[in-house]
Design a protein around this nucleic acid. Structure first.
Length: 212
DNA sequence: CCCGTGATTTAT
DNA sequence: TAAATCACGGGG
């Protein structure tokens, strides 16, 4: 098995990082075994101006503190009383910008993933959602704040020398946001003043492994 | 369609 | 202190 270089260019803006992450491999080590999948769906969260971000308005709490770490760290949070979600922090320290990892195409350690998710019946059930992939890969709060560029437990591997061409990536609005966000605001992204409608979700075109 | 589940956030 | 919310998932 050849070794692949790590993806470490996470200090760019979250839209750039999001596009570059699609097609790369997320690797988790459990008891010496590799569990991994190709990243097929991500969402960018743009910091204090982004009403949908945990750091909207510059809010700083115990929960979201890791989102203010320098790009390359993990921000893991617990929600709905039972699910964990994994973000790759981007940008510089204190920016509060990140990319949510929403879905993977499972590749290595599929048997272990099925053991971690007893309800899953098919390969597509393992990692087709942000809470599913953290369950499959045993990602929880103990990984919050780790440095993905140096960790021996969780990291991103480059599997292509170059990023995917835009023609292979689809852009849509983000999933699961409160419809109350469907309003205009002072901040804007790419001409969008409506953060609910902003095209900040990136999926691998024609992938069978995206969420929903 | 609805519900579980509990930390966090917001309202009183 | 109480109520509402939540970057979700599973079952009808």
């Amino acid at each position: 098995m050849p070794t692949f270089p790590r993806f470490t260019a996470m200090d760019a803006d979250p839209v750039t990082v999001a596009q570059r992450l699609v097609g790369q491999r997320l690797v988790r080590i459990i008891e010496g075994q590799r569990l991994s999948g190709i990243i097929v769906e991500v969402e960018a969260y743009l910091g204090s101006e982004d009403l949908a971000a945990h750091t909207a308005g510059g809010r700083r709490t115990v929960r979201n503190e890791a989102m203010y770490l320098p790009g390359g760290h993990a921000y893991v949070y617990f929600t709905y009383g039972m699910h964990h979600c994994l973000n790759v922090v981007c940008g510089q320290r204190d920016e509060g910008v990140a990319v949510l990892i929403r879905a993977l195409e499972p590749s290595e350690g599929v048997d272990a993933m099925f053991r971690n998710r007893p309800r899953a019946r098919h390969l597509v059930d393992l990692c087709s959602g942000p809470g599913k992939l953290t369950q499959s890969l045993q990602i929880d709060l103990h990984l919050n704040g780790i440095d993905l560029r140096s960790s021996d437990q969780l990291w991103v591997e480059r599997r292509r020398k170059n990023i995917l061409p835009p023609s292979q990536i689809e852009r849509t609005r983000r999933i699961g946001l409160n419809s109350q966000l469907n309003v205009d605001s002072l901040g804007n992204f790419d001409g969008f003043t409506n953060w609910w409608a902003a095209p900040l979700r990136f999926t691998l075109k024609n992938s069978q492994f995206i969420s929903r």
